[in-house]
Measured scan of single mutants.
Amino acid sequence: MASQGTKRSYEQMETDGERQNATEIRASVGKMIDGIGRFYIQMCTELKLSDYEGRLIQNSLTIERMVLSAFDERRNKYLEEHPSAGKDPKKTGGPIYKRVDRKWMRELVLYDKEEIRRIWRQANNGDDATAGLTHMMIWHSNLNDTTYQRTRALVRTGMDPRMCSLMQGSTLPRRSGAAGAAVKGVGTMVMELIRMIKRGINDRNFWRGENGRKTRSAYERMCNILKGKFQTAAQRAMMDQVRESRNPGNAEIEDLIFLARSALILRGSVAHKSCLPACVYGPAVASGYDFEKEGYSLVGIDPFKLLQNSQVYSLIRPNENPAHKSQLVWMACNSAAFEDLRVLSFIRGTKVSPRGKLSTRGVQIASNENMDAMESSTLELRSRYWAIRTRSGGNTNQQRASAGQISVQPAFSVQRNLPFDKPTIMAAFTGNTEGRTSDMRAEIIRMMEGAKPEEMSFQGRGVFELSDERAANPIVPSFDMSNEGSYFFGDNAEEYDN
Rank of each mutant, 00 (worst) to 15 (best):
A472F: 12
D340T: 13
Q327I: 12
I57P: 02
P277L: 14
R267H: 13
V329D: 07
A337K: 08
V312F: 03
D145Q: 10
V183N: 09
Q405P: 01
K229F: 11
I119H: 02
D101P: 00
K452E: 13
N205V: 03
I445S: 03
K325H: 13
G185A: 07
S176Y: 05
V183M: 04
N202D: 15
E375D: 02
V280T: 12
Q241V: 13
I388V: 14
A2E: 06
A123S: 00
I33V: 14
R221F: 12
I33W: 10
M222R: 13
E254P: 12
R441I: 11
M1F: 10
S326K: 11
D112K: 06
R355Y: 10
L172R: 04
I316M: 02
S314Y: 08
L341A: 12
G249I: 06
E73C: 12
K214W: 05
Q12L: 01
P322E: 03
S407I: 01
P95T: 02
G490A: 08
S367I: 07
T92R: 07
R221K: 14
K293A: 03
I265H: 12
K77C: 01
Q364N: 15
C279D: 12
V186Q: 00
R470E: 11
I445C: 12
I41N: 14
G5C: 01
C333M: 02
R461A: 12
N368M: 00
R461G: 09
N417T: 01
M32V: 15
T45L: 14
R389Q: 11
I116L: 04
R446C: 08
R261A: 13
L418T: 00
G212L: 05
H140R: 09
Q415F: 01
S297V: 14
T6N: 03
A471Y: 10
A278Q: 09
G180L: 03
I201M: 01
I445F: 07
M13A: 01
E24S: 15
M371R: 07
S377Y: 05
K227E: 14
I194H: 01
G180Y: 10
D290N: 01
E53Y: 04
V29K: 07
R199L: 12
I253M: 02
A278N: 12
Y97I: 06
M163R: 05
Q405A: 02
D145M: 10
N368I: 14
M189A: 01
T45G: 01
L47M: 12
S438Y: 01
E443Y: 10
E294I: 01
N144C: 05
Y289R: 04
A401Q: 12
Y313C: 14
G268C: 12
T437M: 10
A260S: 06
G295N: 13
W386M: 04
L264K: 13
I406C: 00
R441W: 12
S413T: 13
D128M: 00
V463R: 07
R246A: 13
L143E: 14
M32N: 10
G393W: 10
S413P: 03
T134V: 01
E64K: 04
V476M: 15
G249R: 05
A237I: 07
A451L: 06
K90Q: 01
P161Q: 02
D128L: 01
I36T: 03
R55V: 03
M440A: 15
N142W: 08
T6C: 11
I119E: 05
G288W: 10
L328Q: 02
A263N: 13
F420K: 07
T433M: 00
T157E: 08
I119V: 04
R342Q: 03
K103C: 01
D203F: 10
S367L: 14
F458S: 08
M239C: 06
I388M: 15
A411G: 13
P173T: 12
V285C: 09
I33H: 10
E449W: 10
D421T: 04
P283R: 01
D112Q: 03
P173Q: 14
F488C: 14
V343H: 12
G30K: 09
M167I: 08
E73Y: 03
P89K: 03
A85W: 07
S165I: 08
K31I: 04
T92E: 11
E380S: 08
T390Y: 10
K325V: 11
G404H: 09
F429L: 06
R461E: 12
Y496C: 08
K305F: 05
G94P: 03
Q327G: 13
N224S: 13
Q327E: 07
I225Q: 08
T157V: 14
R236M: 05
G54T: 04
L166H: 05
D468W: 10
P419H: 03
K103P: 04
V299T: 03
N247W: 05
D255R: 09
R236G: 09
L276M: 09
Q405H: 04
S438V: 01
D497N: 06
G268I: 08
A442M: 02
P161C: 06
K87G: 12
N498I: 04
K198W: 10
N483K: 15
L256C: 13
T130G: 04
P474H: 09
E380F: 08
N321H: 03
W386Y: 08
S9C: 07
E469S: 04
I194K: 13
F420R: 12
G35H: 14
K48C: 04
T151A: 04
V299N: 10
F291H: 13
I225E: 12
V343R: 08
A472G: 13
V280N: 12
P283K: 00
M105F: 00
L264F: 15
P303H: 02
K229G: 04
R436W: 13
I33K: 13
D160S: 02
A271P: 12
P419D: 10
R150K: 13
